[in-house]
Amino acid sequence: MRIKFIPLILITIVLFSCSNTISTTKKTYKVSQTTPLKKEWHFTANEWHLQQDTLTGNGGPMHWGVIESKKQLPKNYEINFKVNMTKESLFEVMLNIDKKNYIRTYLYQIDQNIVIGRGVYNKNSDEYGKRGGLTVFRKPMKLENNKWYSVKIKVSNNQLYFSVDDKTTLECSLEKSDLSQKGKLGFITNGEAKITDLSIQSIQ
């Protein structure tokens, strides 16, 4: 009887290993030293690196440091992590990257806001207008360097929920706001940002 179950187990393993999404309902994706970064992410070595369980990004005002997942985000997902902007003013989570379009969810120190926006990212250009984009929603929040912030992002049934420290929250409908409804995940910094406790989970 046990022999009959072996092919089923093997098929299940293959399906999960070949999945085109960054996480599944049965597996939460976490960044750790045991998982080679290059296996799951596109990035430039001098811009992003992993040390122990901390992902550090480096960029500048004229060239933002970007890292992008190789796999798609699930249709419904939850992302949790802590971030510290150790230098400069911008840290951005790129959601549902689809070709050049994505959703901007970011912390911006200059305006002292958390923001949801409509983004454009051209990998081959740092020209104005070929990265970043328009603000759709914003909410004031005191933001500063060298401080850890807990971020939660959830997309469920095309509804986006973006929260920082469980006290400042933005919500919107992807469809009504004309925001990208599928795609990959990425992070951007215009200085130095540290990310820890990153987990990405598919939800029902």
Rank of each mutant, 00 (worst) to 15 (best):
V83K: 03
V83G: 13
V83Y: 01
V83P: 03
V83L: 08
V83C: 09
N84W: 00
N84C: 13
N84F: 06
M85P: 03
T86V: 14
T86K: 08
T86I: 15
T86D: 08
K87W: 08
K87I: 03
K87S: 07
K87V: 14
E88T: 08
E88H: 09
E88C: 07
E88S: 14
E88A: 06
S89Q: 10
L90T: 13
L90G: 10
F91D: 04
E92S: 14
E92K: 01
E92I: 00
E92F: 02
E92G: 09
V93L: 14
V93T: 15
V93S: 11
V93C: 06
V93Q: 03
V93D: 01
V93G: 10
M94T: 11
M94N: 11
M94P: 07
M94K: 04
L95W: 02
L95M: 08
L95K: 05
L95P: 03
N96L: 11
N96F: 09
N96A: 13
I97G: 02
I97Y: 02
D98H: 15
D98S: 13
D98A: 08
D98W: 05
D98K: 14
K99H: 11
K99F: 12
K99R: 09
K99N: 12
K99P: 00
K100A: 04
K100N: 15
K100I: 14
K100V: 09
N101H: 15
N101D: 13
N101C: 07
N101T: 15
N101Y: 03
N101E: 13
Y102T: 15
I103Y: 01
I103V: 14
I103R: 11
I103W: 08
I103K: 08
R104C: 06
R104P: 06
R104M: 04
R104D: 12
R104A: 06
R104G: 10
T105F: 07
T105H: 11
T105M: 01
T105I: 04
Y106G: 13
Y106N: 11
Y106V: 05
Y106P: 09
Y106F: 04
L107I: 01
L107R: 12
L107N: 00
L107F: 07
L107M: 15
L107D: 06
Y108G: 10
Y108Q: 05
Y108A: 02
Q109H: 13
Q109C: 04
Q109V: 02
I110Y: 14
I110V: 12
I110T: 13
D111E: 08
D111W: 14
D111V: 09
Q112M: 05
N113P: 04
N113I: 13
N113Y: 02
N113R: 12
I114F: 00
I114E: 04
I114S: 09
V115K: 02
V115I: 14
V115S: 00
V115M: 07
V115T: 05
I116V: 12
I116C: 02
I116Y: 01
G117L: 03
G117N: 01
G117F: 01
R118T: 09
R118E: 02
R118G: 06
R118L: 03
G119F: 05
G119W: 00
G119S: 06
V120Y: 04
V120P: 00
V120C: 05
V120N: 13
V120D: 10
Y121G: 08
Y121A: 00
Y121E: 09
Y121L: 12
Y121F: 13
N122V: 12
N122T: 03
